[in-house]
Structures are given as structure tokens and as C-alpha cells.
Simulated assay, not measured.
Amino acid sequence: MTEFISSKSARLDQELALYLKISRNQVLSLIKGGNVSVNDKVVTKAGFALNLGDKISLIKPQITPIQSEFKAEFDVEILYEDSDILVINKPIGVTVHPAPSVKEATLVEWLKQKGYTLSSLGGTERAGIVHRLDKGTSGVMVVAKNNQAHTALSQQLSSKDMGRIYLALCDLPLKENCIIDRPIGRHPQNRLKNTIVSGAKSAKSAFANILTTQNKRVNLIAAKLFTGRTHQIRVHLASINRHILGDDLYGFKSNSDRISRIFLHAYILRLIHPRSNQIMEFKAPLPNEFYELIGKEVNKEIVDESTTPSILCDIFRDSSYWMYYN
């Protein structure tokens, strides 16, 4: 049992979140589960009004382990690890979260098998996943190794302090570097897809041309996310008639057998370390398939020089004069 004295008059959920350094959603789960008492009386209302000097007691619930019927038999490259965070290079073909429709091991199962799970104060064991990538997208992801790190990183994601840059191969070059600020919602006829929907959740992306082959059939572009909607990059590009190679769901058409994957890769992740407050930058190397496709016309050294993190970050530093789609 954990006990402490209220330092001021406040809502119960606010005081608990501040003291425990966990998210309000986790606090809400604790309170609704009957695990919190004020002056020795169980309180189940998050908005309960505390007075200065009230005694708050917390009973940690039994942890419900992650249920899994699949064994992860794939490898995941670890780019960085310390006591608070794990940074990985997610391979293509791996789904991040389990779902009834997913009949194979996911990244969550891999994390559990490797011992990377959080004992949530809410009573449920969970993976410390902060953000997700589509099954067909490879690249850099950060995973929290404790509840405090998860809360801090989630706040960075919400406040836009966490920066993400993707690389993609497209069927057509951009007319010019651009910002797309168009809301994204579920497609009315195809529930596997999202689309631009007026009044749906806001979504904003920036896109820049990096390299174009001489025949303009393969075009390397970079994308920066300001929000994190499902399929956001793919939907926004489709809305201006640009399609990622291999992305049949969003309009790419080819009879060629050489397109073996969706050519979208989470390349750079910048974050503030949850303990040291140091700005950290991680890069997931560009997969070989990208070089194989673009390298027939563009030298690998040119690709590497054009995609150094400093150059890409400079490109996106000032997009105020770019073409704007809304």
C-alpha cells in the first residue's frame, strides 16, 4: 500500500497523477477499480474534491498478464537501450498491436518474450509502446521501459516535441515541397482504408523531394509528421495523386514483380530523454530494398549524402513558404 498526504485542495485524479507521475488514464483506471481511498474511505470518482491534509491510500491491484497465443519468431534490431527507453528498427510485415483479426505474433508478443513490459498501476501488464507503425512500414520506434518514461514520451508525442521523419519511394515526384493539412477519417466504402473526411480528426504532414531518377519512375521523398493518424502519409499523398511504391491499398498500380513491399520507412526519431532531458536522435538505416530499386540509376553514395539527418532536418526547418494543401 502507498500512502501520502494531499498537498493542496485539488481533484483526486490530478493529485494522484502528480504524485505518482503517471497518466490521467492510468489514474482513472485505479480510481474506478476501487483501489484508492481518501481518509480510509474508498473513492471511485475521479473528480472527488480533496482538502489540504487529506490522507490518500493506494492499493496496487493484481497484475493481469498480457494474453498471447502466438510466439514471436522474428528478430528486431535494437538501435539503443538504457534503463528507461528501448529504440528499435521495426521490420516490415510485423503488426504492432494484437487484434482479433491478427492471426500471428505482433511486436507486443516480441516485447513480452524479451521481458520488455510495464507493470501498469492500472492492473494490466502492457507493452510500453508510445507510437505505432503500420504493418507494412519499417523503421525506428521508441518503447518505454517504465511507467514514468511512458508518460513523459506520450506527452512529447502529444505536444509535438517528438520529431519523426520518414523516407518513401513514390511513383511521381512532388510538384514542389508541400504541406498537406487535411482531416483524416475512415473510408465510407472500405473499412481497411482511411481517407480525407471533412470534419474528421485534423492531420498535418510535410513532404519534400529528395531524389528523382532520370526516367522519373522512382522518386525518393521525405515526410515529416505533425500529427499521427492511421495511414496518414499514405492518405495525404494519395490526396494529391502521389502513391508510395507497393501501396496497392492507396492506389499504386504496377504489374512488376519487383515491388516487394510498401516503400515507406520511419527513418529519423528525435526525442527528449525522459530522465536526462537530453535531446536524442536515432536513425534506422535505409533498407536494402530501397537501394536496390533506386540504385540502378542513382549511386548509393549520393543517396546516403542526400539523406543524412542534418540535411533532412534542415529541409524541414522552415516550411512556411511551401505549397499548402487544405
Rank of each mutant, 00 (worst) to 15 (best):
T213A: 01
K216D: 03
R217Y: 11
V218Q: 08
V218I: 15
V218G: 02
V218M: 02
N219V: 11
N219L: 04
L220P: 05
L220G: 04
L220H: 03
I221K: 07
I221T: 06
I221D: 01
A222S: 10
L225R: 07
L225N: 05
F226C: 01
F226T: 03
F226V: 03
T227F: 10
R229P: 08
R229H: 00
R229Y: 11
T230C: 00
T230F: 02
H231R: 03
I233K: 05
I233W: 05
V235W: 02
V235F: 00
V235H: 01
H236V: 02
L237Y: 05
L237M: 14
A238W: 01
S239H: 02
N241M: 01
R242N: 00
H243E: 01
H243W: 12
H243D: 02
I244V: 13
I244D: 04
L245K: 06
G246A: 06
G246E: 06
D247T: 03
D248V: 13
D248A: 10
D248Q: 12
Y250H: 04
Y250G: 01
Y250F: 03
G251L: 01
F252W: 13
K253H: 14
S254F: 07
S254K: 09
S254G: 08
S254A: 13
S256K: 15
S256V: 14
S256C: 10
S256E: 15
D257C: 05
D257V: 12
D257R: 15
D257H: 11
I259M: 13
R261D: 09
R261I: 00
R261Y: 07
I262E: 02
I262A: 01
F263L: 06
F263M: 14
F263Y: 15
H265S: 05
H265D: 11
A266Q: 02
A266F: 10
Y267P: 05
Y267N: 05
I268H: 05
L269M: 03
R270N: 10
L271C: 06
L271M: 11
H273L: 09
P274E: 02
S276Q: 00
Q278I: 14
Q278G: 02
I279T: 08
E281Y: 06
E281P: 08
K283Q: 13
K283M: 13
A284L: 06
A284R: 07
P285N: 15
P285M: 06
P285W: 08
L286N: 09
L286V: 12
L286G: 10
L286K: 09
L286Y: 09
L286Q: 12
P287C: 06
N288G: 15
Y291R: 14
Y291I: 12
E292L: 15
I294V: 14
I294H: 08
I294F: 14
I294S: 11
K296M: 12
K296C: 04
E297Y: 11
V298N: 12
V298C: 11
V298S: 05
V298H: 11
K300S: 03
K300G: 11
K300L: 09
K300R: 06
E301G: 04
E301I: 10
I302D: 14
V303D: 03
V303G: 13
E305K: 15
S306Q: 12
S306T: 08
S306F: 07
T308D: 09
P309D: 11
P309Y: 07
S310D: 03
S310F: 00
I311P: 07
